[in-house]
Nucleic acid binder design. Sequence first.
DNA 1: CTGAAAGCGCTAACAG
DNA 2: CTGTTAGCGCTTTCAG
Lengths: 337, 337
Amino acid sequence: MSAKRLTIRDIAQMTGVSYATVSRALSGSAGVSDQTRKRILSTCNKLGYTANYMARSLVARKSKLIGFIVGSIDNPYMGQLACQVELSARQKGYNLILCNSMHQEEHEAELFSLLLGRQVDGVIIIPTSSKSYGALEKFFEQIPTVFIGENLRDAPKSYVAVDNYRGTMLGTEYLISLGHRSIVYIGYRSESVTHQLRVGGYTQACKDHGLETTVIDNRESASSIEQGYILAKKYFSRYLSHTAIVTATDTTALGVMKAADEAGIVIPRDISIVGFDNISYSMLPRINLTTIEQPFNTMAASAVDMLIRTIEDPAMGYSHIVLSPTLIKRGTCRPVE
Amino acid sequence: MSAKRLTIRDIAQMTGVSYATVSRALSGSAGVSDQTRKRILSTCNKLGYTANYMARSLVARKSKLIGFIVGSIDNPYMGQLACQVELSARQKGYNLILCNSMHQEEHEAELFSLLLGRQVDGVIIIPTSSKSYGALEKFFEQIPTVFIGENLRDAPKSYVAVDNYRGTMLGTEYLISLGHRSIVYIGYRSESVTHQLRVGGYTQACKDHGLETTVIDNRESASSIEQGYILAKKYFSRYLSHTAIVTATDTTALGVMKAADEAGIVIPRDISIVGFDNISYSMLPRINLTTIEQPFNTMAASAVDMLIRTIEDPAMGYSHIVLSPTLIKRGTCRPVE
DNA sequence: CTGAAAGCGCTAACAG
DNA sequence: CTGTTAGCGCTTTCAG
């Protein structure tokens, strides 16, 4: 096992040149004859030599490493983003150190320090809530950071998010266009700006059409199927008047659907429902959820681009990228007679 | 941005000691008076100093970094494993570099070299197929590696997997106990040993009870909902005789269910189905898939343990951990009259 | 075009 | 108990 890895000196000796020359040949910098370069390169991969990034990073003072903090990678929304983030980053020569915060703000801060110690050149974070921002502020001047998913409003920090307000507005108006006059919002997490905006879009759309609003809060630190289920179960046991539901997230919607099924409420016959996120599971057969799509690939690519631009030019300011959501019509909504 | 990070010398100067003393104080090694240690530690976190892992790793010749190669992290099966792997690794002082191979063996090899250059102390891989093993063999003597998920039979390399043979056997026998006499297997990927074992368990169970077998192959390099759908669609358009389906994976089952729904085939009334993996979405309301569970948490924790043990004691041999699967009875199977 | 030497931030002997 | 001195493997001046 690990027969002491080869160093630049070893291959210098083999080739009969100084190790400085080897370094030059490998890093592609000028000042080496084509002949020696070829000779060096060939012995390198004959012996399977791979340069030591650690040493290289130490002198270069940059690691080409990006810290990536997510609530938990088994959440499909984060998984989809993570996949694209990793791919774009790698394509640009960066690798990702993955960290799960388990949706806890204290952990996010600890993880940030850890990542700082790891000498990452920047961090991309899918924050648990907007509160994350405040707690993390002290790190921002130490290291380029970009947020994904959470809308930080006018905070002086880079983020890429979807237009959440417009998203729920789109969803709510679709429901209204179908004839619904009594719509409830389920799963509002008040400490999240994303959720504030989502509930805002719903409220505005209702107001615009002279409709009443009802909002059911989620007091947990994350949205999940379980939470949606719990919330909806309680809801179904008390209210009966609404003909449609706007949910905070697709996972919430999934939980709501479960509760509806158990209560013998048929979707969309008895009640219509629209989700938010368009996680891959929303398109499943039996689910077939009408929802608002977040453009994952664009979000991930933009975040990586933004971060790397800031890393390479520290004088760069911040940017806010707010992408357009799309309504995906599937099978959970129907016109009201 | 990044006001040149503090070094050990900076804080040595501030405290009025030599930087070696600071190093000792930080690494907790003996040979520093409690008083000076406290003084050093306090200035350290007053100034927000974090030790440079790169430099530390360079001299220690270990990075406390683990490379983690997955097919693609947005696959729920891999996401669930990844989450646990990261958590266990971090708890033991290791961090993860995440890489998506996009289910391509060539990429796996490239990723391995890259990770080697990154000086990871070991790698955990969820291989695309058993072919991965051969192509990667040349790396194994260079770095501790453990495989998750794929059963490598008697290969001289560490892996943790579920007893796939026993899994489908369990599933098939359950179906048989329900009275099914005509069962088809959908989604066999012949280049994967995991799949060979799964189809083996199915075949054996059928043989044991004197039943015929029918196997539908998946010629793609990965299982997915889409593949399951395509396979099932073709299947439903030709066969009609089976009363039950054993699927290679839950994602396959999901695709099969979609095709069934579209074809007007009602599950479980017209046909029963059992999946494999118990990914989180199988328990969804409308899905409620009867399936074989893989113990994700145990698998992840064992893999990390095994790897770290090998890292810390290079003389360690390899181990094969084959965990027991469990049948999760849900709503997609019913007794045949 | 190539070699020698200094140093990135840290740890680990070895002295004092 | 603390300071000094070599490096870890590499890049990068600066000479030749």
